[in-house]
Amino acid sequence: MGSMSGFWTIFWAKLSEFLPNLLVGFEVTLIVAAGSFVIAMSLGLLLAIARQSQNRWASVPAGIYIEFIRGTPALTQLFIIYFGLAQLGFSLPGLVAAIAGLGLNGAAYVAEIFRAGLQAVPDGQRQAAISLGLTPYQTFRHIRIPQAVKLMMPAFCNYAIQLLKDTSLASVVAAPEVMFRARALVMETYLSMQIYVLVGLMYLSISIPLSILAGRLQRRTVKMAGAAA
């Protein structure tokens, strides 16, 4: 009991020291999340298009990629990019490896979200657009994508939450994100409980709003689908 309260005394005394340090780390966390999100979204869209293509040279490799990513742990993929590439003479900084790794990983999941969303748009609308003289690209851009994106929004929010948490993997390749800094602080101070709880709260400050947003979008989507039926 005595030592616990002692820890808290030290914690409060040092909070002003920890907090800026951890916040700098959390900024890096957000950069990793944002960077990999952008990669995952763009590559994921391309993968989804390739996957549904009539051309086997596009659809088969895309399928293999998606299966490989979804069938192996993100940590393994990250190690391949960081340690594996280094062995071949391409050493990437931890931060770059983390963004690339999580982006390449997320692309497979995003591709599946896009595929499901595009499939949910009734094919009759594609046919109507084509019959009016829209090109396949215009149909994709003006009819299918806008509706698919609306349907996909809740899934993208959930993916963003998952990604935010997965950025902690970056700590094992020495990207100076919040978990990496927290571990260093704990080694210095032995205040594991206090520091990790504080870090947990930082993650929650982003994930809870995202989760509420996902819930709202979900209800809206259900309403949309109900009205269409």
């Binding site: 009734p122 009759g124 609308q125 046919q127 109507a128 657009a129 084509i130 019959s131 009016l132 003289g133 829209l134 090109t135 009819i143 509706q147 269409a228």
Partner: peptide
């Protein structure tokens, strides 16, 4: 696409853009 633009098609199930 250019030629289809001159031919209207009305579907059984309307197929409006929702």
């Amino acid at each position: 696409a250019k030629k289809r633009a001159d031919i209207g098609f009305v579907f059984q199930r309307f197929n409006l853009f929702s």
